[in-house]
Design a protein around this nucleic acid. Structure first.
Lengths: 231, 231
DNA sequence: GTGGCGGATTTGTCTGATGACTTAGGCTTA
DNA sequence: TAAGCCTAAGTCATCAGACAAATCCGCCAC
């Protein structure tokens, strides 16, 4: 087995076996090198690998630690790779978001949080009164994020955040062709979701959320260049 | 900005800008070092980071390449971190699996694939006639995997695979307490899913899949030690 | 008791050298 | 001609050593 892979497997094993739990500190690098039988360069490359995945954290001058191993925090790291996925793959991811967020919206509607509807209403008021693309993206994230948070599963919130963040890069809200139509349709979709939450109707909330995200999928699909037949 | 972070940002930028598409080859390491203004050590640590995330691949003796950027392949890499998430977080992830797989099962039922039901039936026949924990885990993965594949969204399949793989580590099917009861209940759940697919009833399929995975959640929850009150 | 200071510890970065693997092209041979 | 070998260049993998930068901790002065 290659040196870096050996170090990687050793580090993961130390965590998986329970030898080191969340927040625990690893031995210093020279000690780990001897224990794992690799050079410091190879060890550090393995540490970086697990660092990128959100499993461990190195603090300059302090030490190397196991992360909290919180699923939402780990999933947030996925944006480093998801943000680079091209449009074709993004459409598959949006189906994941549609299903998950529809579920979270229904759960949020079923719970009786009187403050949620008020907060969502304020966000939509601001959202409907701006045409700035960056602000639209920010407020849209706040709206959906608040609903997912109310859904009660931080992992679902983190996952939908990552996917929504990727979609945002396409900036379908840039002023230009169809901007007015898209904006109005999006605003209507948000109001339908809010209405379902206000009336505490989970089925309507799920349907409204699903329809809203499906609309986003159609806009993004329209951006995809039609495949050319091979001569 | 720290050297490794600078290299990491530079590499991601080269991909995000479209300068290097899926499968493209990076310049040799010495050239990249000069371009990014970092040493070879720092560059290699950055490359390892993106490698762990499934974004780039280094081939010994050949070069460093952008991966296919296929969402399913990238999501499969997440098992490196998800497999280390402790039980509390796993329950949140299982809700994700339940929602996604319920959706995929409904979609599979709606599609008319005459071979699917036959293949699933064969898997269940073998599953019901074994008591080997490893084989049970393998056949269970084959059953759910075939259904998700029929659902038509490889990203959903990859995501549910990762979560199911994590759950499998707890090996609730080890012979011991309640083994018979758990096994029979699991078998019944599988048959209910297959029946819904055979009759092409998406709603029943979604319900059966959701109930089956919810049952798994309850078994895992029973494994979780009850939190002790702090004196 | 408190605050600052300085040494010890630890990770971050750079440099140089060597080994291992892949690839391409020419060469040999049937 | 075509298949196979074989050499050489290109490239990543690993190791070793040194120094810089950040943090941590105990000691000392006040």
């Amino acid at each position: 087995m290659a040196a870096t892979d050996k170090a990687l497997a050793g580090l993961r094993q130390m965590i998986a076996s329970g030898e080191l739990g969340p927040g625990a500190k690893f031995p210093p690098e020279p000690e780990l090198c001897e224990h794992l039988g690799v050079s410091r360069s190879s060890l550090r490359e393995a540490v970086r690998s697990l660092g990128a995945l959100g499993v461990i954290e190195s603090r300059h001058g302090s030490g190397t630690y196991v992360s909290a191993l919180d699923p939402a925090a780990i999933i947030s790291r996925f944006s480093l790779s998801v943000d680079l996925i091209p449009l074709e793959g993004l459409l598959e991811l949006l189906e994941v978001r549609r299903v998950l967020e529809s579920h979270a919206t229904a759960t949020a509607a079923a719970r009786q949080d009187p403050e949620l509807a008020d907060r969502l209403g304020e966000i939509l008021d601001r959202l409907e009164s701006t045409t700035d693309a960056t602000e639209i993206q920010h407020l849209d994230a706040a709206f959906h994020g608040a609903i997912c948070t109310a859904g009660g599963n931080p992992t679902v919130t983190a996952l939908t955040d990552v996917i929504r963040g990727r979609g945002g890069h396409y900036r379908i809200f840039e002023p230009g062709t169809d901007f007015e139509a898209i904006k109005q349709s999006s605003d209507r979709g948000h109001r339908a979701i809010l209405a379902a939450i206000t009336t505490r109707d989970p089925a309507a909330a799920a349907t409204a959320a699903s329809a809203h995200i499906a609309q986003t999928e159609r806009w993004l699909r329209a951006l995809r260049p039609v495949p050319q037949p091979v001569p």
